[in-house]
Every structure is written in structure tokens, then in C-alpha cells.
């Protein structure tokens, strides 16, 4: 009774497995290995931004970071422009990306705190700023990443290198959420901010940290994505607006905050990619694919939330 059926995240893995199986049926078992490799690679980007979004959503109703795509784009653009395919500048390039993320996070929370704008509006409006900065700085040029970085991002032995990064991020996030004091503070703030404050939780510090962490993870994901796909482009982050939120919700975290889990984000990220490849392999056109993606996500969310009430 108290076993796996009570874990809300189990459903995202079952769904991912089902999508994988359904694809294999069509292909007659061909290409399972390469599908798995691709799923891990693409899920990695979603996991990294999804973990950041998860912490933000945990902060409670109204908290969501809509600037993730723009932060990814801006960080990747600035970092690749700085490195300019120069191998010796790889580490500083990474730091430039993460520094850009930090600045974006601070800017976001500054808007929320100082101007008292709801987070959804603050991050949406700041994302226009970040996007404009990215456009202004790269002026339509597409700069290739340094060779070793591109090799790292596309390579891997048994599992892709990117998946190792994503697993590392997920493990750290799990420790923070489940074992660290900060995790307790985040969960408490999301349930009842006033009560958390009266219990000695430094709520502003917690919220600041979460928004900055979300932006840093977005910048890391953007940096990796640009290296993976051979350069930054201006709409590279676009699909991660919805993906980052969807993986949190499908993963069984509460959209109302205060109750989140990391394993679900990973399972949901796999599912999101496998779902699209399944629909591809069944030969659906782009329109039908989008509709079916939406319908299936809705079904998973409904099913997962039903389970939660029953438990």
C-alpha cells in the first residue's frame, strides 16, 4: 500500500516506458539502442531546466519562471561569441554563460521583490529584455562552438555525456530538496509563506536563491544545447517554455507548490521526448503530433493527480 503506487513520479516512468514500447512495436524492435541514446540526450536539456522550474513552482501559487527560454538563448549567445571557436577560452566561456544566468536570476527576483510584480509577469517581461539583448549582441551571426565542446556535447560511451551532466544536476537537486535544510525551507515557503517566515525561515533569501538557481540552470542548459547543435540561435530556447513546466507537472509535483519531486522531472523529460518520437514513428504530421502531444499530456496529468488524491 505504501509502496511505489504512492509515489506520484512512478507514472511518468511508466508513461515513458509505454511510449518507448509503442515505438518499438512499429519499428519491429529496430533501433532501440539509438532511440534510447537520443532520448537520454534530449531529455538532459529538459531535466536541467525542469529542475530549476520545479524549485520555482515549489515556491507556491503564481511562482513560475517564464524567462527560461530567453535566459538559455542569451547565455548561449554571449558565451559562444566570447569563445569564438577558441579552444583555450572554453572554461571562461562556461563561466560567462553561468554568470549571465546569475545576472538574469538576480534581475528577475529584483523585479518581483522591488516592483512587487507577480512572478509570472516579471519573468515574462524580463524575458523580452533578455531576448533583445541576445539579438543585439549576436546580430544574426551563428558562431560555432569550440571543437572539443561540440564533441563532448554530442558524444558519450554507454550513455551520452549530457545525460551524465543531467544526472549530476538531478542528484544535487534531490539532495537539496529532500535532505537539506534549504529544501525544507523551500517547501515550507511554498505551503504558507507567512507561517514559514514566522517559523524563522528566511523567505526572501530562499526565493532569491531559487530564482537565481533556476536562471543558472537555464543558462547551463542553453550553453550545452548550443554546443550540441553547433551554435546558438535566437529561438533555440523556445520549446523549453512549455517543456520546463510540463515536466514538472507530469512528474507529479504539485502545481500549487509546496510538494515536488526530482525523479518525476527526469521521468517526464524522457516521456516528453519518447512521446514525440512515437508519434513520429506512427507517421503523424506536425499538426496531429502537436494535438496528440497536448491530449496525452493532459491525460497523464489527470491520471497522476487522481492517484494523488486516492493515496
Amino acid at each position: 500500500m505504501s509502496g511505489l503506487s504512492q509515489k506520484p513520479w512512478i507514472w511518468s516512468y511508466l508513461a515513458a516506458l509505454a511510449a518507448f514500447g509503442a515505438t518499438m512495436i512499429v519499428s519491429g524492435g529496430q533501433g532501440g539502442g539509438s532511440l534510447f541514446f537520443a532520448a537520454l540526450t534530449f531529455a538532459s536539456f529538459a531535466v536541467i531546466v525542469g529542475v530549476g522550474q520545479m524549485f520555482v513552482i515549489t515556491l507556491g501559487p503564481g511562482n513560475v519562471d517564464l524567462s527560461i527560454p530567453a535566459t538559455m538563448t542569451l547565455a548561449a549567445t554571449l558565451a559562444l561569441k566570447f569563445m569564438d571557436t577558441n579552444t583555450s577560452l572554453m572554461l571562461p566561456g562556461l563561466l560567462i554563460a553561468l554568470g549571465t544566468g546569475t545576472a538574469c536570476g538576480i534581475f528577475n527576483f529584483g523585479l518581483i521583490l522591488l516592483l512587487r510584480i507577480p512572478p509570472i509577469i516579471a519573468t515574462l517581461s524580463s524575458s523580452f529584455l533578455f531576448q533583445s539583448l541576445a539579438i543585439w549582441s549576436n546580430r544574426g551571426l551563428r558562431i560555432k562552438p569550440p571543437e572539443p565542446l561540440a564533441d563532448f556535447a554530442t558524444g558519450g560511451l554507454v550513455i551520452p555525456n549530457l545525460a551524465l551532466v543531467a544526472i549530476g544536476v538531478a542528484v544535487v537537486a534531490w539532495i537539496v530538496l529532500e535532505r537539506a535544510i534549504v529544501g525544507r525551507w523551500i517547501l515550507a515557503t511554498g505551503q504558507n509563506m507567512r507561517a514559514a517566515q514566522l517559523s524563522g525561515v528566511p523567505v526572501n533569501g530562499v526565493r532569491f536563491g531559487v530564482y537565481v538557481a533556476s536562471a543558472i540552470l537555464a543558462s547551463l542548459s542553453g550553453f550545452l544545447l548550443a554546443n550540441f547543435s553547433g551554435g546558438a540561435n535566437l529561438n533555440m530556447g523556445a520549446e523549453y517554455m512549455l517543456t520546463s513546466i510540463a515536466v514538472v507537472v507530469i512528474g507529479g509535483s504539485s502545481i500549487a507548490g509546496g510538494n515536488s519531486n526530482v525523479p518525476g522531472v527526469c521521468g517526464a523529460a524522457l516521456f516528453m521526448f519518447l512521446l514525440v518520437s512515437m508519434l513520429n514513428s506512427y507517421g503523424f504530421g506536425a499538426g496531429a503530433r502537436l494535438i496528440l502531444t497536448g491530449v496525452i499530456i493532459m491525460m497523464v496529468v489527470v491520471f497522476a493527480s487522481k492517484r494523488k488524491y486516492a493515496a
Partner: peptide, 16 residues
């Protein structure tokens, strides 16, 4: 309003 973390166990509420 000011005290209880409604999603949490007795233990986590106590130790916060």
C-alpha cells in the same frame, strides 16, 4: 494562517 504547514507531517512541522 500563521502556523501549520498543511502538506507536512507532524515531525516536519515540529522541526522547522
Amino acid at each position: 494562517r500563521d502556523g501549520v504547514m498543511p502538506l507536512w507531517s507532524i515531525l516536519k512541522n515540529l522541526s522547522l
